[in-house]
Nucleic acid binder design. Structure first.
Lengths: 166, 166
DNA sequence: GTCGGGCTACTCGGATATTGGCTGTCCGAGTCTGACTGG
DNA sequence: CCAGTCAGACTCGGACAGCCAATATCCGAGTAGCCCGAC
């Protein structure tokens, strides 16, 4: 039932990309290394985000990843759903229609009360994520910096030369 | 990321048990057959609900399953969490502490903003399920019956003699 | 007729395969950079 | 000195294994009901 760990990766990666200057790009390998993630499987998550139009990839020697949209226009829900293939938590297989006492199918137009509650819970879960954008995260992250991380990041970027396109 | 299908089974089964008269019990096999479920794996879900104290099982020749609590005292969340081992959707592995630019661990007492949002979404999901009880489901199910199902159920119960303990 | 005992059938619970999806690894196609060469 | 060309290296994207948990199946331990026989 748990979300794939690529969800956590994707969210942190998108937040990192959203904090980069306009036009900058960074290779997926460097982005993975920065987060302490093995690059192989991480690239799979990035591929899904590219397919969803959330980030863009530039091929070639100085290629890399960058946001494809403004941070204000990307909700956390979009990222999560892209990585989880737009699935819902609860899946109703309509078992009420399956037993020996089931009625004719035309009597089951409305979803059952169990499915209604479960889908409502799913909707609430999504609502929270839909009403939070990457820009919101960027703002709150800037408001509560971890001491030393920003400086270390700047040094690391300069040292490795991971950022291109500026 | 999806919930196990045992969640759907468990919810429908609990609702069925909650609709039975006080003191009645029904074998897991019959309960599975009534819902058109293969009995083998279904019993695993029932075992978890027994371990959680939501339903009770009676062994022996005329044994079976019955509610262990009043329907008013069982929320959908309790059922789902019992079947899903009380896991949360989002798992934060604190990757912010893992990269080459991470600070000392004592600077990461508060959860990161990403985890906060995700956990808030999880909390909203649970809130919906926690505020709905089996009694609520029983009430709404009685208010909108499917034509013929109740009669067929009574006939089926009488025919198979699945209900014991009355 | 009644009581006791034992047998049988039926139940739950756990041990044991199997499968599907998430995770991990690797290699090839494509492209930009940079140097080299010729004018 | 400058422009064109070419080799090289680095990038993403997809194809191919490994592993864990969800799913499925089966069998054994235990118990309640029922039958039979003795009193």
């Amino acid at each position: 039932m748990q979300l794939s760990e690529t969800v956590e990766w994707g969210l942190h990666a998108c937040l990192a990309l959203a904090m980069m200057p306009e036009g900058a790009r960074i290779p997926a390998r460097a982005l993975a290394e920065y987060h302490g993630i093995k690059p192989g499987y991480f690239s799979k998550a990035m591929q899904k985000l590219v397919a969803a139009g959330i980030i863009q990839s530039v091929e070639g020697r100085s290629g890399g990843l960058a946001m494809a949209k403004q941070a204000e226009d990307v909700s956390l829900l979009q990222i999560v759903m892209a990585l989880e293939d737009h699935k819902t938590f609860f899946r109703c297989s309509e078992i009420r229609q399956k037993g020996p006492c089931a009625a004719a199918p035309e009597h089951y137009r409305a979803p059952c009360n169990i499915a209604r509650v479960m889908h409502k819970a799913d909707a609430e879960w999504r609502r929270v994520l839909a009403t939070t954008s990457l820009a919101d995260l960027r703002l709150s992250a800037a408001a509560e910096p971890i001491p030393g991380v920003n400086e270390a990041t700047q040094d690391w970027l300069a040292e490795t030369g991971a950022v291109r396109g500026l």
